[in-house]
């Protein structure tokens, strides 16, 4: 037990180190102003990291599949479609002129709404989880094809605006939206934490979990609602983040050697914080490309995940 605990503390130390570096490296000019700016960005990074890590753990537990990401539910594809539709209808300038609060709220409601509209009826009819995920995946494909259709019709100048929206962007998050995001993410994370023992049992699959007294369809509905909420919040705040969750959960599992949620949830979240905050710090001060974090995380994350998959087989 203490060996596992040490690993969790190791992840915590790593995350803390990244946070300290992010706040302290290369401080110059008006200290109060710079620190406030950095703290805001830190809050955005931490919040997205935790939301993505927790959502991925939950989805993988419910499906019993360690290589799924919440993007199988098609929510990020819906987000991109929404952004593209707005640029298409309003033009690049019009899009840039919309109140960010409105954009955030609309994106959040659209994602939660579609998740409820598509997944709840399927759950209520006791159809299989896989049918539901397949529906999500098909919707994702539909949204993506609509997005690329619209993108073709968009003025090339406006297209550049759109490309910025396709990857997560942590630089331009507003304080008031951040507060809303933090509250929702914290609520979701606390709920997941309180469910940690039930989640261990859910991971055994529907039959064994039912035998142990889990009300399967109710529990699954609650967990998927949590996933949808966490994904919607983080996507509405910064944009889609796909591979980060896969990588941090795989790393957390590799590091601690257990799938118990009391360990996996915090470790995955801490590693996600370390990756995002550390990555941002490195890009900003080492490589001078602060805006590119979203792209880099997806690229490196994808590669790292492939590597983890390839080495898993040999054990």
């Amino acid at each position: 037990m203490s060996a596992v605990e040490r690993r969790v503390w190791l992840a915590a130390g790593l995350a803390l180190l990244c946070v300290v570096l992010h706040m302290a490296v290369g401080l110059r000019g008006n200290l109060a102003f710079v620190l406030e700016l950095r703290a805001l960005k830190l809050l955005a990074l931490v919040q997205v990291a935790v939301a993505v890590a927790v959502a991925t753990v939950l989805l993988q537990t419910v499906t019993g599949n360690r290589i799924l990401t919440p993007s199988i539910m098609g929510l990020d594809a819906l987000y991109l479609l929404g952004q593209t539709a707005m640029v298409f209808l309003l033009g690049g300038l019009g899009f840039a002129g919309i109140d960010p609060r409105l954009k955030f709220l609309a994106a959040l409601l659209a994602m939660v709404g579609i998740a409820a509209a598509v997944f709840l009826p399927i759950l209520r009819r006791h159809l299989s989880l896989y049918r539901m995920l397949l529906t999500g995946a098909l919707l994702g494909i539909l949204f993506r094809s609509l997005t690329s259709l619209l993108a073709r019709l968009i003025d090339p100048n406006d297209f550049a605006v759109l490309q910025g929206a396709s990857y997560a962007n942590f630089s331009a998050v507003r304080g008031d939206l951040l507060v809303v995001g933090c509250v929702l993410t914290a609520a979701g994370t606390v709920t997941a934490w309180r469910l940690r023992h039930a989640l261990d049992v859910v991971a055994l699959g529907p039959a064994a979990a039912t035998a142990l007294g889990i009300d399967w369809s109710r529990q699954i509905t609650a967990i998927l609602a949590l996933v949808a909420m966490l994904v919607a919040v983080s996507t509405a705040l910064v944009g889609p983040v796909v591979f980060l969750g896969l990588v941090v959960v795989a790393l957390a599992e590799r590091l601690t050697g257990t799938q118990r949620h009391a360990v996996l949830l915090p470790t995955a979240a801490l590693i996600a914080v370390a990756v995002l905050v550390g990555g941002q710090t490195l890009l900003q001060h080492g490589l001078g490309g602060a805006g590119a974090l979203g792209v880099v995380v997806e690229f490196v994350g994808g590669l790292l995940f492939l590597f983890l998959l390839a080495t898993e087989r040999r054990r």
């Binding site: 019993g64 991971a203 055994l204 699959g205 064994a208 599992e253 050697g257 257990t258 799938q259 118990r260």
Partner: peptide, 8 residues
Amino acid sequence: DTGFAGRL
């Protein structure tokens, strides 16, 4: 078919 193969 107990069919569980997770890390436990």
